[in-house]
Design a protein around this nucleic acid. Structure first.
Length: 487
RNA sequence: GGCCCCAUCGUCUAUCGGUUAGGACGCGACCCUUUCAAGGUCGAGAGACGGGUUCGAUUCCCGUUGGGGCUACCA
């Protein structure tokens, strides 16, 4: 399918909560399309529903978009600011005979609806009852009675070539004459959207497929207004692990939740892109630019996808390892500072060392938090060996003592020049173990435990090198002194 | 109920009539190995069902079933 030119797409969330991963995915696909083809990506806040819209939500959307790196072009459009145009468009439809005044009270409508439901019949407003004779209408109008403006759905069929689904058609007889302007003068969703999309020059509308049944109504409005139709594309939904529509019950559904759980924007974007789209081959891990380069509407899927947090974490681990260090540093630093392990200034003061540490830790981490947690022993002066690990060491105090003593001796004897020579240090430690008839692992393990307070860490020589001689020896000495039977 | 959309391993997906139905996550085993990751090898694991069309259907058509969406003077 050929894309419109100029290409102007938009993301139009209503600010009633947080930036949901589903919304983020919709925004991402629009953004990808615009960035790939040199189009414009616009942002419109649909704050028409004052009761549900809040400034906090609007801010959350901006923050989420910014975090993900989805920058928008031109000024943000606030739907609420376009009230006058929405009204003018509605009245234009009234004047051109594409809509009519409806003086029916909400209570009456409700009664009709209940009636139809009782009779198990599909409800549609009855034009014969609603459209009044000219003189009656004039009288009500003169009396100042409130009325809504209802769109007059013509006979026929409304269809379009959907960017992802191909041809979709709705018989117009199944579409009710719908209200476009409330009796209080405010527009309804379908009307405001079309009015705004026309005004913004949007040429391609890509949104969730929960909007498929809104599309024929919107197309009818475009046509009645004499506007050029945009291309429509409807993206599949995102579901939770239980196959149901993704919601709060599934835990983290806001992009900010993932941000706080140590997910990188780069990974989030990559993961989201693969939900409902495929580059066609076996590609999985793609950085931003590659995503833009490969994105193609032909790869858009029709089937709803399940959001799998496990795969997101794996994806994050991949990005953590592959991204330039400059991109993983900021969030890790924030975490370290927040945890109180070090100050930003302290880290900046030994930047090379810090980056070496990050390189060592990121390969075995899946989240930013994993790195922060593992960085603790290298940043703090003192460490505490957890009780259960200490118990393991103390159980055979003599073996532990001789292993630590041998390791200590090897480290003390290691020339400064070899301190950062992993192979030399390893040889020295292995020789020390052999010297007391121990397998090397039996020496590395207790050493690791007393140096890091953990049973997992980078290779032992890297640990020692990162810690430095003084701190390493101090930790060994502290453990030696604490061992049962110590002098 | 009516209308619309959808349907390949548990999950994300490849396949654009002919494949031992491929890859990834997760799971299991093994290798590497000083731990944990990472990496490597291997394994279990899928075309919802029924009809057509065709020499041949996962692929095209119809139906069934099962999911989902909409059905407001909500967005």
């Amino acid at each position: 399918m050929i894309l419109p030119s100029p290409l102007r797409v938009r993301f139009a969330p209503s600010p009633t909560g947080y930036l949901h991963v589903g919304g983020a995915r919709t925004a991402l696909f629009n953004w990808l399309l615009a960035r790939k083809h040199g189009g414009q990506f616009l942002l419109r806040i649909e704050d028409t529903d004052k009761a549900r819209s809040t400034d906090d939500s609007t801010r959350a959307i901006f923050e989420g978009m910014t975090w993900l790196g989805l920058d928008w072009d031109e000024d943000v459009v606030y739907q609420g600011a376009n009230l006058l145009r929405h009204q003018a468009d509605a009245y234009r439809l009234l004047e051109t005979g594409h809509a009519y005044r409806d003086f029916t009270s909400p209570a009456q409508l409700e009664a009709w609806r209940a009636e139809a439901e009782a009779a198990k019949l599909p409800f549609k407003v009855d034009r014969a009852k609603v459209i009044l004779p000219r003189d009656v209408e004039a009288a009500k109008l003169a009396a100042g009675e409130p009325f809504a403006i209802r769109f007059k759905v013509p006979d026929g069929t409304t269809e379009w070539m959907d960017l992802v689904h191909g041809r979709i058609a709705f018989p117009n007889k199944d579409i009710e004459d719908f209200v476009i302007l409330r009796s209080d003068g405010t527009p309804l969703y379908n009307h405001a959207v079309v009015s705004d999309d026309i005004a913004m020059g949007v040429t391609l509308v890509m949104r969730g497929d929960d909007h498929i049944s809104n599309t024929p109504k919107q197309i009818l409005i475009y046509e009645a207004l004499g506007a050029r139709l945009p291309v429509f594309g409807h993206l599949p939904m995102i579901h939770g692990t239980d196959g149901k529509k993704l919601s709060k019950r599934h835990g983290a559904t806001a992009v900010a939740d993932w941000q706080h759980q140590g997910i990188l924007p780069s990974a989030m974007v990559n993961f989201l892109a693969l939900l409902g789209w495929s580059p066609g081959g076996d590609l999985e891990v793609m950085l931003r630019d590659e995503l833009i380069g490969r994105f193609d509407p032909d790869g858009l899927l029709k089937k709803a996808a399940v959001f799998d947090p496990k795969k997101l974490e794996w994806m994050n681990g991949q990005h953590l390892s592959r991204l330039p260090i400059a991109e993983v540093e900021p969030p890790v630093t924030r975490g370290i500072v927040a945890a109180g392990f070090a100050s930003e200034a302290e880290l900046a003061a030994r930047r090379d060392w810090y980056h070496r540490l990050l390189d060592l830790l990121r390969v075995r981490a899946r989240t930013v938090d994993d790195i922060v947690r593992q960085a603790e022993p290298y940043l703090r002066a003192e460490i505490a060996v957890p009780d259960d690990l200490w118990a393991g060491l103390a159980k055979d105090a003599e073996a532990t003592r001789s292993a630590l003593t041998a390791a200590r001796g090897a480290l003390v004897a290691l020339p400064d020049a070899q301190w950062h020579d992993g192979a030399a240090m390893e040889a020295a430690l292995r020789a020390a173990a052999e010297g007391i008839g121990l397998a090397a692992g039996k020496l590395f393990t207790p050493l690791r435990t007393v140096l890091t307070g953990s049973k997992v860490s980078p290779g032992i020589t890297d640990v020692v090198a990162m810690l430095g001689r003084d701190r390493s020896l101090a930790r060994v000495d502290a453990a030696l002194a604490r061992l049962p039977g110590a002098p």
